[in-house]
Design a protein around this nucleic acid. Structure first.
Lengths: 144, 144
DNA sequence: TATTGTTATACTCTATAACTATA
DNA sequence: TATAGTTATAGAGTATAACAATA
C-alpha cells in the first residue's frame, strides 16, 4: 500500500508554482546580466537603484536590502570608489550618514533600468486585456 | 520642453513588471528562509533539490546552477561532509564523478519542498478558474 | 589533444561581535 | 544608556587559471 505523508497539493497549483519558479529564475538571470553589463554585482545594482530615487541613511539601506548594516558599508565603499555614490552628513543627526547617488550614478541606474528587457519581451505577447487579467491575479495573489 | 530619451513602456506593463518583481522578492525570501530552517544555504538547497531527482555529474550540476564547475566542488564538499550527498564513480567514464543524494539527503530535500509554503498561501485565495487563467498567462509569457 | 574534476587564488556578500562618535 | 556607522573576522559563493587523470 502506498504511504501518503505529505499534504497533497492539487496538480494545477503545483504547475502554477512551477511556472512562477521559472519566472523567478529568468528574472534573476536577466537582472544579474544587466548588472554585469554595467560592471555591477546584483547587490550593488539594487543599492544603486534605491539611491537613484532618493538619498538614504546607511541603516535604512540595510533594512531595504534585508542585510546587516555592516555589509552596507562595503557595498557603498565600492560604489563610492567608482564615483557612483557619495556619503553626506545628515544635518539633523550627526551620527547619520546619507548615501546618495551622484549624477553619474543616476545615469548608470537609468541605463540599468532600461536594459532590463524583462519588462518588454515576455509581456509583449499579451494583449491589453490579458495584461489586465495578469495584473489582477498577481495583485490578489500578493495580498494573501 | 520635456526631454524623452527612454522608450516609453505603458503604465500597465510597468505595473505588471513591478508586481512580478514583488513576487520574485517574496519567492526568494521564502526559499532562503526554508533553506535556513534546514541549515542550508540557497545554493546548497538548490543543488540538493536537483540531486533528489537523480544523480548528476559535477559538470551537469554546474550547468544547471549556472555557475563554474569549480564552485560545485565546494558546495558538494559541504553537503557530503553532512552526509546529505555522496560522490560515486561513473562506470561509463572514469573521469566523471556522479553526485547523488543519500537517503538522508532525499529526506531533507522532501522536507524542504514541503516547507515551501509559497505554493499554498498565495494561491489559496484564487479559485480553480483563476488559477487556470494565471497558468495560461504565465505560460504565454514564458514562451515569448 | 580534449574533457572532467579539482586546487589555488582573489573578490564579493553575508552575519556576528566589538569599537567610535554621537544622541 | 541607546543608536548610527564602522571595523574585524570568518564562512560561503563566485570566476579565473593551472593541474592531474582519463578519454
Amino acid at each position: 500500500m502506498a504511504t501518503q505523508k505529505t499534504p497533497r497539493i492539487d496538480p494545477l497549483t503545483l504547475e502554477v508554482v512551477d511556472l512562477i519558479g521559472t519566472v523567478v529564475a529568468r528574472y534573476h538571470e536577466e537582472y544579474e546580466e544587466a548588472a554585469a553589463e554595467h560592471a555591477l554585482t546584483g547587490a550593488q545594482a539594487r543599492l544603486l537603484s534605491l539611491l537613484s530615487l532618493e538619498p538614504l541613511p546607511m541603516r535604512r539601506l540595510a533594512q531595504q536590502l534585508k542585510c546587516e548594516p555592516s555589509n552596507v558599508t562595503g557595498i557603498v565603499d565600492r560604489l563610492e570608489a567608482r564615483g557612483l555614490v557619495e556619503r553626506r552628513p545628515d544635518p539633523a543627526d550627526r551620527r547619520v550618514k546619507l548615501a546618495a547617488a551622484t549624477e553619474e550614478g543616476r545615469q548608470v541606474a537609468r541605463s540599468l533600468r532600461d536594459s532590463l528587457n524583462f519588462a518588454r519581451e515576455p509581456l509583449a505577447g499579451l494583449s491589453d486585456d490579458e495584461r489586465l487579467s495578469l495584473r489582477d491575479l498577481l495583485r490578489r495573489m500578493l495580498e494573501a
